[in-house]
Amino acid sequence: MKIKARTIVEGQVEGKALISKDPISFYGGVDPETGIVREKGHSLEGVSIANKILIFPYGKGSTVGSYVILALAKNNVAPKAIINLESEPIIIIGCILTGIPLVDRPEKNIFDIVKDDDNVKVIARKDSAYILVSRDKFREKL
């Protein structure tokens, strides 16, 4: 499955999908040391976003969130790439400064198509972005 999207920060990476239907506040919401989501009641509470292709609708909360993305990268627990429905400045600046590939506005409903742990490849070039999704065969049967 191939989904077109908009490039915000260029790059090409491959990894396992992690989906959050809730918006994410990096400041206060994610532990900068471990990459574990610690916001009470969040759909990813207790889950690590480290080295995942992180998919969530948009950012929320404090403007200090960009600094948390810098800290995650420094501690090697940042996501490999971020896919948003609509990116906003806090996330964008965090990704530009750390080089984390960032795309948004996927042309298909990504929450219907991609499930946790699917293999996702993000190809974000200057003028075009694609999200390639594949599922391991044995998981199809589950």
Binding site: P32, T63, V64, Y67, L70, A71, K74
Partner: peptide, 16 residues
């Protein structure tokens, strides 16, 4: 400018 306390921005903020 916000994000001034070292408690909030940490080492990576300072490095930035």
């Amino acid at each position: 400018i916000s994000g001034i306390s070292f408690k909030n921005i940490g080492d990576s903020g300072l490095e930035f």
